[in-house]
Simulated scan of single mutants.
Amino acid sequence: MKAVILAAGYGTRLQRDVESDPTGRFSHLRGTPKPLLPVGPATLISHWVRALFDSRSVDTVLVVTNDLFLEAFQKWAEQFPNVKVLSDGTRSNEERLGAVACLQLILKHFKVEDDVIVIGGDTLFKEDFSLAKIITEFTHLQAKCNENNLVLSYECKDDETSKYGILEVDADMRVRCMKEKPFPSQTDSRRACPCFYLLSKNSIPLLDAFLKEKKAAPIEERDAPGNFLSWLILRKPVYVHQISGRFDVGNLTSYVECDSFFKNFLDLKSYLM
C-alpha cells in the first residue's frame, strides 16, 4: 500500500495569524508550511510518516507540495529513505491546482497501481485513533469486495454541520450520501468527514473521470478532496470508521491546541498503532 500526504496548500490563514499576533511568540513559524509545523515532539507530517512505516502496511509515502515549499520538504524528507516529494509546479495560492488534481498528479508521476491512503497534511487525530485498527478494517472490507473504500468520521456539534461534509450512512456503516456543509435541519447526521481516506486501487482511475467532468468548473469544486469523495460515493462502496475527533490546523488557535495536546499526550505509540 502507498500513502499520499497532501501538502500543496499555502497556509494563508495561519500565516496571517502569525503575522498579526502581538505577542511575537510564534514568529519562528513565519513561512513554515503547515505539515512542517512543530507539533509536540516532531513536525506534524513526521507523526504520520513514522506511524505509516511502523504499521508495516505502507512501503512508500508520497508527499505533494508546491514550488514555494519544495526545498523545505526535500530537506525534511532526507531523514526518511522511503519518502518521495513532488511539486505541483505552483508558487501562489491563486495558482493552486486543487487537492484532487494534486492527488492525481503524484499518483500518475510515480505510476501508482496500488491501494492508497490519502491524508490531509494539516490534520492529526485524537487519542483513540489507531492506524492498525483502521488498516485491519480496510483489509477485511477488501476481502469482501476489492472495490470497497474506507473513510473516517467523527461526531460534530449541531452548529458545525455547515462547516463540513456530512456523511449519511446505513446500518452497515456504508455511506449513502455526503451533504456538503448542510444546515442542521437538512440532515439528521452529524458525521463530519476529515481528509483521511483508504482508497482501493479500483477507485483510483476515477480521479481522471472526476477531473474531466469538473474541468470547466471553478477551482472550489475541484479543490477539496471531499468533493471527489462525494462524487465517488455514488460509484463505489465507501464505508465509515468512527473516531472521536481531529485537529485541523487551519489557524493559530487550532495550531496551539494541537501542539499542546501532543506535548502532553506522551503515549504516542498507542496513537500511532
Rank of each mutant, 00 (worst) to 15 (best):
Ala101Arg: 15
Thr139Pro: 00
Arg190Glu: 00
Glu160Cys: 00
Leu199Arg: 05
Thr161Gly: 07
Val169Trp: 04
Leu199Asp: 01
Met178Gln: 13
Asn148Leu: 02
Gly226Arg: 13
Tyr154Pro: 12
Thr139Ser: 11
Gly226Tyr: 09
Phe110Gln: 00
Pro205Glu: 12
Thr187Trp: 04
Ala217Val: 07
Arg174Gln: 15
Ala132Met: 10
Glu127Gly: 12
Thr161Asn: 10
Glu220Lys: 15
Ile106Cys: 05
Phe125Asn: 08
Lys157Ala: 13
Phe210Lys: 06
Asn148Ala: 12
Asp208Phe: 00
Tyr197Ala: 00
Leu199Phe: 12
Leu86Trp: 04
Leu229Asp: 00
Thr90Asp: 06
Cys177Leu: 11
Arg222Cys: 11
Lys144Val: 12
Asp170Pro: 05
Phe210Cys: 06
Arg191Ala: 13
Gly98Thr: 04
Asp208Arg: 10
Lys108Ile: 02
Asp115Arg: 14
Gly98Ile: 03
Asp188His: 03
Leu152His: 07
Phe110Ile: 03
Lys144Cys: 04
Arg222Asn: 04
Lys84Phe: 09
Lys163Val: 06
Pro182Met: 07
Cys102Asn: 15
Ala171Phe: 06
Leu86Thr: 07
Leu198Tyr: 09
Ser185Phe: 10
Asn149Asp: 03
Glu220Thr: 13
Ala224Gln: 14
Leu141Cys: 09
Ser189Pro: 03
Pro182Ser: 09
Phe138Trp: 07
Leu229Pro: 06
Val118Asp: 09
Glu94Trp: 10
Cys177Met: 09
Ser189Thr: 00
Val83Trp: 04
Gly89Lys: 07
Val83Asp: 07
Glu94Phe: 10
Val118Gly: 11
Asn93Met: 01
Gly165His: 07
Asp158Tyr: 02
Ser200Val: 05
Ser200Asn: 07
